[in-house]
Design a protein around this nucleic acid. Structure first.
Lengths: 201, 201
DNA sequence: GCCCGCCCGGGACAAATGTCACCGGTCCAG
DNA sequence: CTGGACCGGTGACATTTGTCCCGGGCGGGC
């Protein structure tokens, strides 16, 4: 019996996947969670063989949870299941020790076969996505530039960002400028967009 | 036998829901589509009793498709199924003649009961969402303000927007200013964010 | 007919933004 | 120990953005 943990915030998706995977005769869903910070505790309780993790989760990110999980429960394979096939996500997933990376666009049948292949020790990654991740290169943004950029989402002013990050407005503008330069964009919004696109956020 | 059409762009979600609904003994999925502009043609072929439509779809929006569907196939009930419970979406769905409005956050079990209730002539709407839709009021943005705002997403400059919408830069700034005023925000990005939030986009 | 809302534009002005040069400090690698 | 990267900050500058004037035109409702 293959024991599965399923982490996904959208209730309907979670329920549907759980039902679906439950139909496989040798699968057993031992835990379902909707928040990232419950992944590790529930995993320690239930000792799954494979953890299916979404990335965008309330609380802890699925990527961070994956890293923690590999620490706490090395026998548990991690399969990332996400809406967005962003190069930086894939890179971070691999660095976090994930065994596979699936996008939700694909057919459902992929899911069960991916679980089995991961359990067999294989790595499951979309070839096109792997190429994109390599061609995009590593994250060029420094931690501070990331902080400032993430604080700049949905139109915060320089003063807002400065307050959020506890920096001088002048410094914030410098970081924004350098981030804009590194992303080869023309303003902060294009920069956050580009950084998001690449999974650098 | 209740015949269903399922429109959803995310392959995994679509497949999972199809399998799930297929388990109900009296349900039959007669069509699955991943693009909005295929909804009406497929519906005309297969004559479903209920159409389950996502809103954000490539091609035609699920809301526009709903309106068209009500025209072409009045006997078919429309059930909107969306990630975002935005007030303006609900309003537009009702205006388009939808019989129900579900958010994907809820449990899967809701889905089948919603389909049955819709078929029984009932309307299925989250009460909290209905209240939000009423309290938010109707869309205050004029068509041009909407155009300019949607062209302003992801950080386009005034010149970019002007080119996209075929307007003078000065006019664009005027529309942006009035949109910012109506949304009670401080800059264009906050305005698009607020407009999005309310489903006014 | 007249008002009103929407459309399209211009000009002027203050504020915000993006860029650049420059400062000092820490810390790490060669 | 020296160069280089990152951090935090300042000041000056040009550009962009947001606001408030103004103008004219079109169409619908009372």
């Amino acid at each position: 019996m293959i024991k599965l943990l399923l982490a996904e915030d959208q209730g309907m998706m979670r329920g549907a996947l759980a039902l679906l995977l439950g139909l496989e005769p040798d699968f057993e869903i031992v835990a379902q969670v909707g928040e990232g910070d419950k992944i590790v505790p529930r995993a320690l309780e239930t000792r799954p063989d494979v953890a299916l993790l979404d990335i965008e989760l309330p609380g802890l990110s699925g990527l961070d949870a994956a890293a923690a999980l590999r620490q706490e429960l090395p026998g548990c394979h991690v399969l990332i299941l996400t809406t967005f096939g962003r190069p930086g996500y894939l890179r971070r997933a691999m660095e976090a020790g994930a065994s596979g990376f699936l996008v939700k666009d694909g057919p459902v049948e992929e899911l069960a076969v991916a679980v089995r292949r991961v359990l067999a020790g294989e790595r499951v990654i979309d070839p096109g996505l792997a190429a994109a991740a390599l061609s995009a290169g590593p994250n060029p943004l420094t931690p501070r530039e990331r902080d400032v950029l993430t604080a700049a989402v949905d139109g915060a002013t320089v003063a807002d960002i400065a307050a959020k990050v506890h920096l001088s407005p002048a410094t914030v503008r410098n970081y924004l400028s350098s981030a804009i330069g590194k992303t080869q964009t023309r303003n902060r919004m294009e920069a956050v967009r580009a950084a998001r696109q690449n999974g650098w956020l």
